[in-house]
């Protein structure tokens, strides 16, 4: 299968000239199987660009079908949906897959985003057919050719990490997760104070859901000197990502959810640090950049993902 990055920035979109290499659009990843099935993870501002590309294909004729996973519903992960062109074409079909947030169904969350006071077109009036699949973290899901495992992440409210398997390739994505040794943030995690037993169990769950993955995409929003005092914002560092990558014995780690304040140079420093810390280990480290496409699993052959 192919994985393409349409948005790698976290928190909010930003347009700065010193960030065009990694890009300023917020989270959106696209998976495509060999036979042409589409799965989208997150509807940050990157989904606008993806939608425009999809409109060059069968989606323009109203003959497209895709699964849309929403990792969680904070602004940076959903604010692109109102500008996703394939939603505006009758005949296209989408299954929106989410664990909801604060007891609210994903349909109502997306519909609330398009309330008349805030957006000119209501969600109910979109022409494409939409159905919904609500699940609980820990559930295993089968979506066409995609087999998924899910795990709750350590982030305020309800946030889900996904293991996506198709065409004998495996990608695990943890978009937003905090350092569990410092803070517990998720719904039902038992309070903010860290707990050694909980930490161990949580890290094992993350590692299990990423076991042997071809690619692990991980929230590395902060550098180590920045995270101090900001644990409760729900993000991690390169060191945290490497810990899980090692436990899970993944082949390739992709740094993700870049801080909007970080220039391309800072992202490159982060990448150099990760490579330095993992020197000599059987692990390739890269930083997610908009437009970057990689082939995952046996299809990869000698093909390597190339940066644009």
């Amino acid at each position: 299968m192919e994985l393409t990055v349409y948005g790698a920035r976290g928190s909010y979109p930003i347009a700065r000239r010193d960030q065009v290499r990694y890009g300023g659009n917020t989270t959106c990843l696209h998976f495509r199987t060999r036979s042409g099935q589409d799965l989208i993870l997150d509807g940050g501002t990157g989904i606008r660009v993806l939608g425009n590309e999809m409109m060059q294909r069968e989606y323009a004729e109203g003959q497209g079908e895709a699964y849309i996973l929403v990792g969680h519903t904070h602004w940076d992960h959903i604010m692109g949906f109102p500008f996703f062109e394939p939603f505006y074409r009758e005949g296209n079909r989408f299954v929106v897959v989410s664990a909801g947030q604060a007891g609210v169904h994903i349909r109502d969350i997306l519909s609330g985003q398009q309330a008349v006071l805030h957006f000119p077109v209501s969600f109910e009036h979109l022409q494409a057919h939409r159905e919904y699949l609500q699940f609980k973290p820990g559930d295993h899901l089968t979506l066409g050719e995609f087999r998924l495992e899910t795990v709750q992440l350590n982030h305020p409210g309800m946030t889900v990490g996904y293991r996506v398997e198709a065409d004998d390739g495996v990608v695990t994505v943890y978009t937003d997760t905090a350092r569990v040794r410092e803070v517990r943030l998720g719904d039902g995690m038992g309070g903010l104070e860290p707990d050694a037993g909980f930490s161990r169990g949580y890290l094992e769950q993350l590692a299990h859901c990423a076991r042997g993955a071809d690619v692990l995409v991980y929230d590395t929003n902060y550098l180590e000197h920045e995270i101090l005092g900001w644990y409760h914002f729900g993000h991690s560092t390169v060191e945290d990502a490497l810990e899980i990558a090692r436990m899970a014995q993944v082949n390739r780690l992709v740094l993700f959810h870049h801080d909007p304040e970080h220039s391309d140079t800072v992202v490159e420093e982060k990448l150099a640090l990760a490579r330095d810390l993992s020197r000599g280990e059987p692990l390739t480290v890269e930083a997610a950049a908009e437009g970057w496409r990689l082939v995952v699993g046996p299809d990869a052959g000698s093909q390597k993902g190339a940066k644009p």
Partner: peptide
């Protein structure tokens, strides 16, 4: 207008 559009083409 409408939505943020970062990127090389709009820099």
């Amino acid at each position: 207008g409408s939505i943020a559009s970062p990127g090389r083409a709009t820099q």
